[in-house]
Amino acid sequence: MRDGVCVRVRSLVKVYAGTVRAVDGVSTEVLDGEIRAFLGPNGAGKTTLMRVLTTQLKPTAGDAWVMGYHVVLEAAKVRGVIGYVPQEFSVWNDLTGYENLLIYAKLYGVPSDERRRVIEEALEFMGLSEAANRLVRTYSGGMIRRLELAAALMVRPKVLFLDEPTIGLDPRARSLVWSRVLEYREEYGTTVVFNTHYMDEAERYAERVTVMNRGRVIAEGSPGELMKLVGEGVVLQIRVNGDAHAALNALSGLEGVVVVSSENPLKVKLADAQQGIARVLGALLARGVGVEEVVVRNPSLEDVFLKLTGMTIEEAEALGYREAAWVRRAIRRGG
């Protein structure tokens, strides 16, 4: 029985080329109707996990089910209930938008007497009606994304898998894509699983977030729950003039102050905003440390990632870059 579980992943492992453990023992459950983000740097294993769930890759070990169907043993049934938009372009740019949806509708087996209506509705919903008869190569990045979404949504999938749905889009195009996804989900109750390395997107749009790093799940919960991992209070970002060491010395031992990042700009976590800020600035000035800029903000998933891994998502990406490049080469070679 599914018991309201839409996607179930159990101890999943995927090893590339015999050595690279892209997914290293992931277990999680996505409930029906949930919006779930898999958040992490490039190379964290999010895409590989999604490709296993969408029946493209067979796991090395472990199991996964989508809508109760096993992704390996019942792959054909899984394909019948999912919609999937990969990270890369997935429409033919030498056809028009309408023709792309027509081809996809025929491949999905949409009955001929419904095709026209289904396609026109999808184009309308995505705000592409006017561009429908233009070749896709004349589209903007945001329009292409919305066309790809239209192709996935027009058949009313039970689960929608989106791999980095807004990668490379400007903020306006990003929010337009999200408004369409959210409205669709509101109307049809579709479960939405998406990968992202944008912290703000996971925070804003997901109901639950699975934070991944190096093939493993390092935390999971609603954005609010995850934020609690860094504790109540605020984060203070301080750009100091000159040596960060002097500043660190000044701050060590201060009550209610935890240094989260020791590089300039320093990030410190304060249990109590009102007293904390005065105490921190007072200590810095007393030691003669020049302060150039102070930013006070609420904790974000960025701080959660920092706390859990000891590095920022950018640093994790830089570290993982060589490995990620190697994995990609291995995949390209077909290893």
Partner: peptide, 15 residues
């Protein structure tokens, strides 16, 4: 294959 088209086509309910 280098774009996402094949990945997508292979996840369609088509043998």
């Amino acid at each position: 294959r280098e774009s996402g088209i094949l990945k997508r086509v292979l996840t369609l309910p088509v043998s």
